[in-house]
């Protein structure tokens, strides 16, 4: 084991240029993946924000007294998936009308025709078209409810795009990871090829497959560690600057920096394993 470790480190020193290429490849791959993750996190937040704004509007029978309205509120909460309920009085409705249409309703009509209502927000896991439809039907059946309104079309479109988005993201992520490993593996293959003599001699003097592989795996791990650490450092510095420019942006959490390093190590290790497979059949 000590031999593998020292040989792994010596290998890096012996083939400085190849090591530099391998480390750079891992570094660039991880940056690409990091940028991709930042993009996903921000897109995810945007979707969540749109979904959190989604609410059902429940119009109350005009003849209902405050007492009965309170009872209605209680019965709304008996339905599963309700997060919060906000009462909008007839007077508030006039104000909202004024804000939205820029005109006082009393200028057009003598009396206030707007009904009082409840703005019902759903729990995060219930913010889908299917649940919204189900809950709106349940709400409709409650006594004193005139009408339930929500943007069903918007929800359906949003969900359709989320599905497409998740699919595309998944494919791109997979391609990125496979591409990175392929690049790393090819670079390490070049390193191994440049040391085919030493491998040949090792084989001929009776080194086991495991013994021959180990220094290269150690080398791959070291390269991955350095590449991953550099990528973490890069994000730390760059994001510090960007954070000042765009305050609302979600960036890589500091807790995720070790993950970048682990990912780098994995790339180096898998790359080495794939490269060695070709050279060391037995």
């Amino acid at each position: 084991m000590l031999y593998s470790l020292t040989e792994g480190f010596k290998g890096l020193r012996r083939a400085k240029f190849s090591a530099f290429v391998a480390i750079s490849t891992i570094f660039l791959s991880l940056i690409l993946i990091g940028v991709f993750i930042i993009f996903i996190l921000n897109a995810q937040r945007l979707v969540n924000r749109i979904q959190s704004r989604m609410e059902l509007e429940l119009f109350i029978d005009n003849s209902y007294t405050m007492e009965r309205i309170e009872e209605l509120k209680k019965s709304i909460f008996t339905i599963t998936g309700i997060d919060s309920v906000r009462y909008v009085s007839k007077d508030e409705a006039v104000e909202i009308f004024k804000q939205q249409f820029g005109q006082d309703i009393f200028e057009i009509l003598d009396e206030n025709p707007l009904p009082s209502s409840f703005q019902v927000k759903l729990k995060p896991t219930f913010r889908s078209a299917v649940y919204a439809k189900k809950i709106s039907e349940q709400l409709n059946q409650l006594e004193g409810v005139d009408e339930v309104y929500y943007r069903q079309d918007l929800l359906i479109i949003l969900e359709k795009y989320i599905q497409l988005f998740v699919g595309v993201i998944f494919v791109i992520g997979l391609l990125l990871a496979a591409g990175s490993i392929f690049l790393v593996s090819n670079t390490i293959k070049l390193i191994i090829f440049s040391r085919s003599t030493i491998i040949e001699i090792m084989k001929l003097v009776g080194a086991t497959r495991r013994f021959i592989r180990r220094p290269f795996l150690v080398e791959g791990i070291i390269q991955g560690f350095i590449g991953g650490s550099l990528a973490a450092l890069f994000f730390y510095l760059i994001l510090k600057i960007i954070k000042l420019e765009i305050p609302g942006l979600i960036l890589i959490n500091q807790k995720n920096y070790p993950l970048l390093i682990i990912l780098g190590i994995l790339f180096g290790l898998i790359g080495s394993l794939l490269a060695l497979r070709k050279f060391l059949k037995y």
Binding site: T197, I198, E200, I201, K203, L204, V205, G206, A207, T208, R209, Y282
Partner: peptide, 18 residues
């Protein structure tokens, strides 16, 4: 196979030294 090879010594025209 490595254990078989340990029973053999081999030399080449081009020496194959490191």
């Amino acid at each position: 196979i490595p254990y078989l090879r340990r029973k053999l010594g081999i030399i080449f025209q081009d020496f194959k030294l490191l």
